[in-house]
Design a protein around this nucleic acid. Structure first.
Lengths: 336, 336
DNA sequence: TTTGAAAACTTAATCGATTAAGTACATTAT
DNA sequence: ATAATGTACTTAATCGATTAAGTTTTCAAA
């Protein structure tokens, strides 16, 4: 491995001079700096991030946390989009990304300890159980954090516009003449609560009464569970004309169930999803859904985290709303 | 930050003693070691991976490389499954995962340099253009690597059983009475070449003649491009009875095109996909496809890489085949 | 010619942990 | 009683880079 010592010897200067020259310090003669840079290139010198991190107390490495237990793992398109855009933005700004988990090999540690162990300059909490004490410990620690879809007190967060999203969908469906709307929702997270509240509020505002049996629990990203919920809804004495699914993937489970009952979409039943993953737009029929601004969320999460890392004293916690958009699709029939 | 120095002071021993005690060295009296461990816990001591890495020359950090340009990004389910399982296995073995990219902020570096800069103990090359000189440099360097779906000379790799996969699919379709098979393939990578070769070979072995216009190029994971290829095939004077798609997602693009022509699957046209992502099994009709052993590939990649890192002298390069399986689905009609 | 300041370096400490080599003391063998 | 052995530590160097403080040289101003 080529170190600054090798360069200093080759150039006949001290290691300090080499370090300063490579970092563009002002007290190095231009000629010397040029000679040093030349030698560095010639010798194939690469800075050692580890050594630098040890000295300067900054690793230029940020942690990303995907809790494995919440089912919000990286294999879901919504999260992998966030991860990909966060990664791209972080790299653009000179930071690498490391996953943060509970327990590493034989060492048992929590998220906070893991982040410290790896000297992460900050952590993006992308998907987690926000009641988990280990998550709370990290999110209220001295380590800069940005959470997605949840806000801790005096902390920065990126929020998907769940309230507006649900409202947009309900209004769209309403404008297409629907008055009996059923809503299958995911596990009771804060996001789910927001969506349910917005669904109910918008319905109320539009003068729609939603019987309680029209609101059904299921599990996010689980076609089987949404299939069951769909069946329960179909067995009601009075069926809704439109079913809201917790997410696009869950819609597929509902779709199978509808088919089994000989119900065609959108002829006999209208449906809407949520997320707007690319897949939803290549399905036949094309799904009516609300696209969350996943890329923007990832990008903003990385950007704000790094800003916070680099200007800790002037930092003001903030919550950024990432706007999504309605993808009209063709699974809502106009029954006006 | 609590360091071994703090512990050494609190216990009235030297820092060396603390280090040895915490690492279970044999020349520390059990009583002393216990006292030190106790103090460490009481003070909330956390080892500093950075400092340790600098001294011992091992970072317990492995790089994962997803080339952004090849379209084989983390958002594709096949790759995100590999990533997730590799991550889980690496963590189980005490290693963290960091993404390796070209260029980091202002520094322009190639993959090899990035891996060195971060002192990665090894790198999993998950998705890349294997002709790219930057990839070749990394994969032939002194850094331990494991490549997925490609083998470099005297290097370890994990291979999806593309040859067997295609053969299985062709035979399955053949047994269902099909003799006119069209194949839409992805970009000309080594994987694609293997699949095409296996397709042709199996057809030949079964006595099927494949006209060259039945073999069409498209782009992986791109429904639009497979839609175009599908159209071209439908315009042929003699249509095939079954179309092979480059992957499950591409099938969706084909599906739209077929619908546009009033062709129902599998009534008027049989189709098969490739990959066997979870989505394919919740689609209606359920897709006939070949499930690649993505989780196993990720797990094995991490396991073998770490074995290679920990036993470099006795290491023998190897290629592990991760077996997949046929998912029969219902998009192939029996026309026997 | 002297003084002062600016320019261009070097010295040495430091980040936190590891480890080869050394030391002190106790115990056992001869 | 002396040497040999072992146990339980400590000392000090080291990993690679950074940086405050110090030194030398150069050169312009007085």
């Amino acid at each position: 491995m080529v170190t600054i010592t090798d360069i200093s010897k080759a150039c006949g200067v001290s290691r300090a001079t080499v370090s300063k020259a490579l970092n563009g310090a002002p007290d190095i003669a231009p000629k010397t700096a040029a000679r040093i840079r030349e030698q560095a290139k010639a010798l194939g010198y690469l800075p050692n991030a580890t050594a630098r991190a040890l000295k300067v107390g900054r690793s230029y490495n940020i942690g990303v946390l995907f809790s494995d237990t919440t089912g919000g793992g990286i294999t879901h398109e919504y999260f992998s989009q966030i991860l990909e855009s966060a990664k791209a933005e972080a790299e653009r700004l000179g930071y690498d990304i490391t996953f943060i988990s509970k327990d590493l090999g034989a060492m048992s540690m929590d998220y906070y300890e893991h982040a410290k162990y790896r000297s992460c300059d900050g952590v993006i909490i992308a998907s987690a159980d926000f009641q988990d004490p280990a998550i709370i410990r990290l999110a209220t620690s001295e380590i800069p954090t940005v959470t997605l879809d949840y806000t801790f007190d005096s902390r920065t967060s990126i929020l998907s516009d769940n309230v507006r999203g649900m409202e947009t969908l309900v209004r769209f469906v309403y404008e297409n003449g629907h008055r009996r709307l059923a809503f299958i929702h995911g596990e009771m997270t804060s996001v789910t609560q927001k969506r349910i509240a917005s669904f109910k509020k918008t319905c109320a505002a539009l003068g729609i009464t939603v019987p309680s049996e029209y609101i059904r629990p299921a599990v996010y990203h689980d076609p089987r569970s949404s299939g069951l919920a769909t069946r329960a809804i179909l067995e009601l004495p009075e069926r809704p004309t439109c079913i809201f699914y917790p997410d696009d993937l869950s819609f597929l489970g509902g779709m199978s169930e509808l088919e089994r009952h000989g119900i065609a979409v959108p002829r006999d039943m209208s449906v809407v999803g949520y997320d707007g993953i690319p897949l939803s737009q290549v399905l036949r029929p094309k799904l009516t859904t609300y696209r969350q601004g996943a890329e923007k969320m990832g990008t903003e999460a990385a950007r704000l985290l790094i800003e916070q890392i680099e200007h800790p004293d002037t930092w003001l916690p903030q919550s950024v709303m990432a706007e999504g958009e309605l993808l009209p699709g063709s699974t809502v029939r106009n029954i006006g």
